[in-house]
Amino acid sequence: MQNAMTQSESAPKPEPAPFLSINNIEVIYDHVILVLKGVSLQVPKGRIVALLGANGAGKTTTLKAVSNLLGAERGDVTKGSIEFCGRRIDQLNPSELVKLGVVQVMEGRHCFGHLTVEENLLTGAYTRKGGRAKIRQDLEMVYDYFPRLKQRCTSLAGYTSGGEQQMTAVGRALMARPQMILLDEPSMGLAPQIVEEIFDIVKNLNVKEGVSFLLAEQNTNIALRFADYGYILENGRVVMDGEAKELAANEDVKEFYLGLSKGGRKSFKEVKHYRRRKRWLA
């Protein structure tokens, strides 16, 4: 076990220069509740990075800190900085951020229930300057990736299935022509085949359109299968990170998150030998 640790410790950082870089951020809700206690992570261009951890570990908060949707929940980034393409983005409002190319797909899909699927997609293009023809073209691109949405394009999004809503949410984000999508818990409440389908599309978008993903997931198994790199959050701190394959092979990860052993230990807190990387002091 120790060995695996040191390996992941000494593994070189992902080669391409960081695209999105979160440096030591601390997030406090309502001025009192400390949720993120110094989280640092990088997403290189063109990669899928998974953010793993249990309920309440701070995955969603991390994504919302990036997309600046925290304000709406009385959360506040009190320390640290967030950079995208070398530019500080912590003070931008969500609209400016979308224009820069960072879009969040929120947990629980959040489609506009009383709008049709197609209207939902079109709202995603709100910040775009381009003419109708260009937007029409992108709409076709989204329909190519999600043929199911084409069939349902005139139904109210509120009446479509969970999978279709998740596709609508991802498609809507795509309409903004993002460079990076912050994808929060895409597997939530969906049947395994649908989850598989959605992850396939995510991978596809990543490869063909060059969209980078920061992906928060509880479903560690599937996330590590599709991601390039992973960070594990526990209690508001990054407790481990590494190439997805290494993480998937790691004994502790297997035990805590993949349910592959019978041991009673449930988190890194209980592992005595594990030398936590004190990234938050970096």
Partner: peptide, 19 residues
């Protein structure tokens, strides 16, 4: 369309960049 989107879900509207 944006108005209706905002009426439906403020947060989601913000997340797609509707000011």
């Amino acid at each position: 369309r944006a108005l209706r989107a905002v009426a439906d879900d403020h947060q989601a509207a913000m997340s797609v960049g509707i000011p």
